[in-house]
Nucleic acid binder design. Structure first.
Lengths: 348, 348
DNA sequence: GTGAAAGCGCTAACAA
DNA sequence: TTGTTAGCGCTTTCAC
């Protein structure tokens, strides 16, 4: 029942040794004579002493803490990253501190700058364009980024978005889809690559795709964008969404508009978030290895911190197609794409 | 291009003033003469000085940081709490630090103890029984808990689980369900109240319920538990799940077993997680105001920190029923509950 | 194996 | 308005 926590001096007094001795004992940096060790142990136990990490950090300059900045804690893609990063951090006796920048660029910089002062290194997921990111280097803290940088020498990790998009497009092509739309999210650093992957694949087949943009990487935005795509004169046979959240929202609204999924329209996404599996129809998606991304980023950062440099600048993970039920094989060229296969009706 | 960050002394030297002056300038605790202010501003700008929050905290004893411990960052219920807590924290110029205890009680205590030393106060979501929670008080930091404590004087917030369960049961009753199962999660501090709420409501109608237990509060666990309930001799007309995640998993597996939802079985959950809305059929659920819980908890903690005591010990939020499509009205007593209404068939 | 002393970067009286 | 001084709780030489 103490008012405030005991300090190292209280322990030293109680154990009748010097503070230096206590410090060494706490840090296991030396061996002790039996009597001293016994007294130390007793005093610490009895006082309930726990050393103050702030004071410790002031001297050592290390906090054994890593900062992770993500764009939206509600997006399962990011929580998977957190899980992965956290696992590696714990294994190495580091604590992970999280901030949610809430897709806001002003907040982003401010929060990251504040966090950077309390940690040994940072992992950040950002929407800022590369040109606007120099300040991160000036933070004087090791940083690992999600998404490759071209100019700036910042280590980073990501999953091959171009390849992922190409694979997904190929799958749709194989299933017989010819008229495909891409519903992207322009502010993402991955969006351009995904468009490129899809476009290339379709170009090889002599086809083009329609590109649309959602106003956010969220289910709501997917709902919002749906009608303009599905009710347009040339309705697509399949739509590739920037991520699973958008896809989920899109599917919900498409159903509300009276379309049958996947018969009337196939929908796919990226990320392989857990809830895609529980939707109906279960969502076909590209697994981008979110959790592994977190692991790799953390390991990279820890390596830098330990001085083991030379572990490359950019780590690229391999995507994997997860086929579920949200796409349907089509007879090539069999139907006029502008007519629904079943009569849409508005829901109550 | 400095090796290590400039200190307050560097600024003092550059601006030709004392460190105390710099400190006061940084903290806006005083007015300055124009020339001094100008020199200060210039020096700080030129050196890129940012004060070290660790050193500051050592003296003030405050970190302007709040720790939040949650059980699983993958559960949208908790991410909603985080969102709410974060909003209030930011409004009050506090930083929120998050740890994910991953549903592990050993980790829980260890992580929370570590975090407690770096923050001004803690908000914690725990599976520990009340008896095992005394140590949190000994942390010497203000704590707010989710879930009421009976003995310990710890401020807490929660949503009325008993009422929520009662309401949900009443709704099912009104729809004509007579044979209902509850699929709970025994380790949760809310579980007992939910059982009580459901049981009471059905007792009033002269009915009883079957109680089952999932091994985790996750979709996987819901899938896992499904067959034992749905393939038993007395199949329920409706099942109330401990949370939406379990409900989502249950629905997926039920469908895989060949049941039609909600015709063959109605399913409901608690929490109102975002993905319930995007499932099909969309999940009927009790909104427990997760986000508001986070807000209230943070506000409570901030109040304690500010010395505004007396804001009650336990804040109870009101639940709200969200009716969607996962339940179906039944003809009372019309059908023998032991036979499926449509013939189950195994899916490929 | 143990202790004395010098700070880490900063704030908070108190003087000037 | 500005400066001096004494630490916050701890680690780290460097003597003993």
């Amino acid at each position: 029942m103490k008012k405030s926590s005991p300090t190292i001096r209280d322990v030293a007094a109680a154990a009748e040794v010097s503070v230096a001795t206590v410090s060494k004992y706490m840090n296991n940096t030396q061996r002790f004579s039996a009597p001293v060790e016994a007294k130390l142990k007793a005093a610490i136990e009895q006082l309930g002493y726990r050393s103050n990490p702030l004071a410790r950090s002031m001297i050592t300059g290390k906090t054994r803490t890593i900062g992770l900045a993500i764009l939206d804690i509600r997006n399962p893609h990011f929580t998977n990253i957190v899980k992965g990063a956290n696992r590696i951090a714990m294994q190495n006796d580091y604590t992970l501190l999280l901030v949610d920048t809430e897709e806001s660029q002003e907040r982003e910089r401010q929060l990251i700058e504040a966090l950077a002062q309390r940690v040994d290194g940072m992992i950040v997921s950002s929407r800022m364009p590369e040109e606007a990111i120099q300040w991160m280097i000036d933070l004087n803290k090791p940083v690992v980024l999600f998404g490759r940088t071209r100019e700036l020498p910042i280590p980073s990790v990501g999953t091959d978005s171009h390849l992922a998009a190409y694979m997904l497009a190929r799958h749709l092509l194989n299933e017989g889809h010819r008229h495909v739309a891409y519903l992207g999210f322009g502010q993402s650093r991955w969006n351009a690559e995904r468009i490129r992957g899809v476009t290339e694949c379709f170009q090889e087949a002599g086809l083009t795709i329609d590109v649309h943009d959602a106003h956010a990487p969220s289910a709501q935005a997917g709902e919002h964008a749906c009608s303009a795509i599905m009710l347009a004169p040339k309705r697509p046979q399949a739509v590739i969404c920037y991520n699973d959240l958008i896809a989920l929202g899109f599917m919900k609204e498409a159903r509300a508009l009276g379309f049958k999924l996947p018969d009337d329209v196939s929908v796919v996404g990226f990320d392989n978030v857990p809830y895609g599996e529980y939707a109906s129809p279960a969502l076909t998606t590209m697994d981008l290895q979110s959790e592994r991304m977190g692991e790799v980023a953390m390991q990279k950062l820890l390596d830098v911190l330990a001085g083991h440099d030379g572990n490359g600048e950019y780590s690229l993970l391999e995507p994997r197609l997860i086929v579920r039920e949200s796409t349907r094989r089509r007879e090539v060229g069999a139907e006029p794409v502008s007519l629904p296969t079943s009569k849409p009706r508005r829901k109550a």
